[in-house]
Design a protein around this nucleic acid. Structure first.
Lengths: 188, 188, 188, 188
DNA sequence: GATGAATGAGTATTCATTCAT
DNA sequence: AATGAATGAATACTCATTCAT
């Protein structure tokens, strides 16, 4: 990827993150960089094209943090995975905002990117659940429902961190794990 | 509310739900109803105004289903609340799509409506948790984190139902309750 | 003229005077009176029609104050005429504003009304000048230019009174007469 | 100022002058130039913006002709000033129409431009009168009233020239000066 | 590679006027 | 006489995209 292309992409990411897709104009991007409008179109087919690229990059950045859980010490590995992403949210709010505030149904291509991502995450969770059952660690359950519940619990806590309503990633992870593993009932 | 106003509002709700805020034009609404453009503006100040009204109505419709949990038999009451909303999602996808696919950050007023709603729901959950602890039913936990986790688990399952990925509201509710109350660990 | 017609005309006059032709809508008029939009059109063909009527009434009200100068004591009669109109401006600013701030070139019919009026006034002045010359009171001059100069001097002073920049009608009249009759040069 | 900007401004001036503010649309301007609607908005914020610019330019063009009267031979200098402006009116009716037929009370900003201009002219006249009194050339008078009378006499004669009712600028100036200096009374 | 002037399709909104009741 | 819901023509303005230099 050429230097100029990276420049535009990175600035576009920052601007899309702070202003949202619709309020950000191509003019905003080129003015912010001090380049000509035509230059933008040398590197990107159109506005949707940059946004797609921004989304792809963002999703891939998060995906890199998701490591397949190895067999030994699965809980520690799980904790690490979750923590790594909550810390990303905490430290790189630009990225987090792009994912959490993506405006669905503008362009099916955009939605696919996020759906694919969430699909993969769900798949990961489902396989982990099934493996857990095989190993006798996880009780029998409807994996389709439970995997979604886990995903939702996690992302909502992520939003809480992004919005500054939840303080620390470390504590949040432990609480999440307790909740997911032990449930809420007292005295068990 | 006048008949014509209701007509427009109801059609706008259907159209916003299926096309999203941006792709739906005022022309779409009036053409769909076979009325003049000016008639629309007799009843609504502008496009944002209808969308706001649609959101408000939608949120209030869901809110009506949320009943405060009474003291006796709290679990049955909880199950009923959850089921009622999942069934709403299952049967009135129009309403569900509006809530789940709302494009944030177009207009702060819109966002406030949903934020207020989610805020109230979170508050409900937090108070239920605290009450549960007082009663010795619920174990000690960080209510701020856990309430978000519960909200997220629930809404994500709701999305699964909306998207047809999760079959029945009844089964989903039971699974959700098991997950939240007992957790996932085997043999406890 | 029917009572309702007068009601509308009088309210329209007040509103046109304060808001100007373009910013005043037919809705403003009917809302201000608490009547239906259709009622307005029972008495007036359209918006231009009311404005024309308002202009006509206004012009005729001023015209009534303009009395032909009689032969004896012409200066006292002139002073009375001028004073009467400046006092009208001073006391009925609604009327004065309509005349002074009429937006030319919206509708030729409107302009005709004022042009006819000013034409008559110019004619009056011209004939007075010619008569004055016959009588040996007024020196020889180009009546076409001088009559306009007199008209302009008078109306501009009228605007000064309307805008509150010139204090009293009495003093203004005397000053105007001195200026027109004796000129500005010292020691003559 | 860029060439295109000047092109639009100049065409807009001609069109505003002949059609008036309201009947002239932005489409009229761009169609008349054979350019795209968007091009207009590259150079002007909106319709009011061009009109403001046209007014400013027009007023400044006239202001350039108003020279401070020097001490020696004040009457000749005065005559020159007046003549210069009447000739402008005679030869550049476009400019004259813009000033004389400006529709007040559409936009306070517009009115300010003309009020500032007339204010400056009044100030010029007032100071000239006061200086004349100091020098013993001008008799004692109420400068506030008389300066307005002078302004009015002059502008009304200007309108007469614009409308073709008064023939020549030269003769008009001499008549105006006689009127203002000597008054109308015979035999003095 | 880079520029930026020009494009024009697309949309929201206003308001005078009509007409069935 | 009076109503007021409905009409729809008219216009301003935005912004992604192109292309000649």
């Amino acid at each position: 990827m050429k230097k100029r292309e990276e420049e535009i992409l990175s600035r576009a990411k920052a601007l899309f993150s702070s202003k949202g897709f619709h309020s950000l104009t191509v003019s905003d991007i080129v003015n912010s960089l001090g380049i000509a409008r035509g230059t933008f179109y040398l590197y990107f087919k159109n506005k949707d094209d940059v946004y797609r690229r921004v989304l792809e990059e963002t999703v891939s950045e998060i995906s890199k943090r998701l490591k397949r859980l190895p067999l030994d010490r699965p809980l520690e590995q799980l904790r690490e995975n979750l923590l790594s992403i909550l810390k990303l949210i905490e430290n790189d709010r630009e990225t987090a905002r792009l994912i959490f505030y993506h405006p669905y149904r503008l362009n099916p291509e955009f939605d696919s990117i996020l759906e694919d991502f969430y699909g993969k995450v769900l798949n990961l969770i489902e396989r982990a659940l099934l493996r857990g059952m095989e190993m006798g660690i996880v009780r029998e359950c409807n994996v389709s429902v439970v995997s979604r519940a886990i995903l939702g619990a996690f992302t909502e806590v992520g939003k809480g961190i992004l919005d500054g309503e939840i303080g620390g990633a470390e504590e949040a992870v432990d609480e999440l794990l307790s909740f997911g593993l032990r449930g809420l009932l007292e005295g068990r």
